[in-house]
Write a protein that binds this DNA or RNA. Sequence first.
DNA 1: TTCGGTTGTTTCACACCATAAAACGCTGGT
DNA 2: ACCAGCGTTTTATGGTGTGAAACAACCGAA
Lengths: 254, 254
Amino acid sequence: MTDQQKSVMQDRGTVRAVERALDVLLCFRAKDELGLTEISKMIGLHKSTVHRLLATLETRGFVRREQSDRYRIGWSILELTSGIYRSGDFSTVVFPEMTALRDRIGETVSLYVRSGFERIRIQAVEGIHAVRRVANIGMRFPLHIGASGKVLLAFCNEPLLDRMESAGALPNNFNKAEFERQLEDIRKRGYAVTFEEREAGAAAVAAPIMNRQNQVSAALSVSGPVDRFSEANLERFIVACVDSANLIGKVFPF
Amino acid sequence: MTDQQKSVMQDRGTVRAVERALDVLLCFRAKDELGLTEISKMIGLHKSTVHRLLATLETRGFVRREQSDRYRIGWSILELTSGIYRSGDFSTVVFPEMTALRDRIGETVSLYVRSGFERIRIQAVEGIHAVRRVANIGMRFPLHIGASGKVLLAFCNEPLLDRMESAGALPNNFNKAEFERQLEDIRKRGYAVTFEEREAGAAAVAAPIMNRQNQVSAALSVSGPVDRFSEANLERFIVACVDSANLIGKVFPF
DNA sequence: TTCGGTTGTTTCACACCATAAAACGCTGGT
DNA sequence: ACCAGCGTTTTATGGTGTGAAACAACCGAA
């Protein structure tokens, strides 16, 4: 163990073994079936260490093994998610309003929150045109790409963009001045619109959900294929999305 | 630390600190907002220990704090769930078939797997009569109560009931001989029917989903108010449920 | 205001336990 | 038969997780 590692791990007030175990769990974001050696390479730990961590995770149901040598996320994770939306009355207010918005405009409605320098899609209601059900709830995306990311950045009180820059969370050729102008525009309008930014062929409208302290707590977005985001539709989408976001922000105690 | 504790923790091949951290996480099954001292009382650890564990969990996004002193489950949990159904093609086979079954009969369709001495509802499609959306996916129930629990027990190759008995997972006044007869009956019929067993006013039909090794891998259930489980309907429910379970078992590589 | 009783937070010395290397069995491919 | 890769087990070492105690900040009661 190097001196650098030593000095880093000194006095952080955290438990190293636990951090490593959680890192093992987070490996399953990338792939939903992993072998022991595979994991040990991903996080740079010794096989035996990972083995013990996995055994520990298994006793509590956080990982499971299907046949013999392949590990998967365990069912305990599900138990914890069932309570995640219970904050206040997520299921009686937010989800119904998202569904109503989807029914009004027909496109996919998503809800994002910020976590660190990323955003997480914490809930989604599929558009009526959706051919396949993509269950990518929980997925992370960068903050600086996509309508809802920009909304979360634009209405954030702290100088988040600066912190991202100094943390190296932005690409090298990132035009910060231009981006700041975009954010200013979003703040003025009260919503964001993007075309084929995060995904080719896709467009999105996003509006901020503000809490009572007038801080942005989430972003509500409407997204779908660009060809359905015509001039006429776009106006409808914007109005509907902003309205729903305002309504949720008024009612929901984020 | 007592000698008893020492001897217990010897040679388990697991990491104590990690087990404790996971126990902290599992506290959020009972309540979705907890204070530090509250947790420390629940699992019998010192405040400072829990504090360090929570700080560690927070760095990886497994818990979050809303205002200052209240802890909640973090968003990282959501990231892990998104991949949980990806085993094989859960979303393209199992979920559509469950939805189709619901559309055929109108009642709530649930999917359970066994985890230890309990069953977990890993997916559900609400019946058309459902007034409120109950998002209790991930919820645990005993194996010996309810139609799907009995199915999981009946078609389990190992002597699970014996192990439950010796582990004290059964109530004191449990009539094991009678229960064994019920299981034998379920094995003969190929499905289970219960009336007001787990919940007052509710009835359920459940059928096993068998994998290629002819082991039960899950239980599919149809449930609703008893008054809709009349003689005539019941027959339809049973046939439809068994059919869907067979279909899923054939296609899905559990 | 001044208490007492809560919180959550920080510090610190000591014993303990997590660690990684190495050796082990096992399986599958060549 | 061989090798390469896997997961598992064992072991000595010293790093590190631990809980008591002291601390700070809050709240309601007297």
